[in-house]
Amino acid sequence: MSFESYVSILDSTVRLGTPLLLACLAGLFSERSGVFDIGLEGKMLVAAFLSAAVAYTTGSAWLGLLAGIAGSLVFSAIHGLASITFRGNQLISGVAINMLASGITVLVGQNWFHQGGGTPALSGAARFRDLTLPFANELRDVPFLGPIYAELISGHSVLVYLAFLMVPATWWVLYRTRFGLRLRAVGENPAAVDTAGVSVVALRFAALAIAGVLCGIAGSYLSTALAAGFGREMTAGRGYIALAALIFAKWRPWQALGSTMFFGFLAAVSIRYPTIDLGVLVIPNEFMDNLPYILTVVVLAGFVGKAIPPRAGGEPYVKER
């Protein structure tokens, strides 16, 4: 295999890993605050649809992004209302959000565009185009480092760079700010936060809002940067893979970067090589597609260190005497 094809696989790793990374960080904020969020998938789907629809109608990818974030935030608010305000079951609320998103995008999409639930193809300013970093073309011919800079580091949409910047930003917020301290505390022991005179409800809603914004960006990236338009069910389980990556990362931001890029790499390989022929045996690409889930089970079973979720995760907070 040539050096160019290695770079090209890594390049698609970044492209495919980016939505996972954004969704994973969204899940990180939500779950660190003690709210399980299996509605990542649904939020991304709604954001992907609204982004594509608004971008197509207005011709502006940026307006599409805003619409996507708004849609995702509304779904976050529904999740918060059900599971924080009314103390419902967080998993059930998340499943409901996924089902609602899956149905409503197709219904509205069909009604608006009559294309089987998808949007027409986007072009021009309705898509986020790949940025070319300074000197990318000039340096392309430098051996080894040239292609890495030109292909791998340069030539992605602005959302990819934003996603990567979110990793240190998340780390900083989590471990260096008052909000981060309270956020981590409320996911571990909400009673401690409550008795310290800080509102558990407000903190958890804030976390869900951040998760909503990040899912919105992830969805928007899917339909207006990675692809050119919305197709029904286009998230294709990425929300669940992001959750798997979150467990893999043990709810930590830098590890989230590693795990999402690893899963992105698996996806890139499976797209490029539908079957891998090792001579002795042939690995079908279904195996590659399922590898993230298999690995998650391995991690949960405790083979690779211990993955301890936030202790108060999944539990609605009820004030006790």
């Binding site: 700010t177 981060g180 301290l181 505390a185 310290a196 800080v198």
Partner: peptide, 27 residues
């Protein structure tokens, strides 16, 4: 309280500061 309201995987310092922070930054 009889049942302590402490965050188990925080340090003593972090538990003391929680909710009584000086400003937006922790340092």
């Amino acid at each position: 309280f009889q049942h302590f309201k402490l965050v188990q995987n925080f340090t003593v310092l972090e538990n003391v500061v929680l909710g009584a922070e000086e400003g937006a930054l922790l340092g």
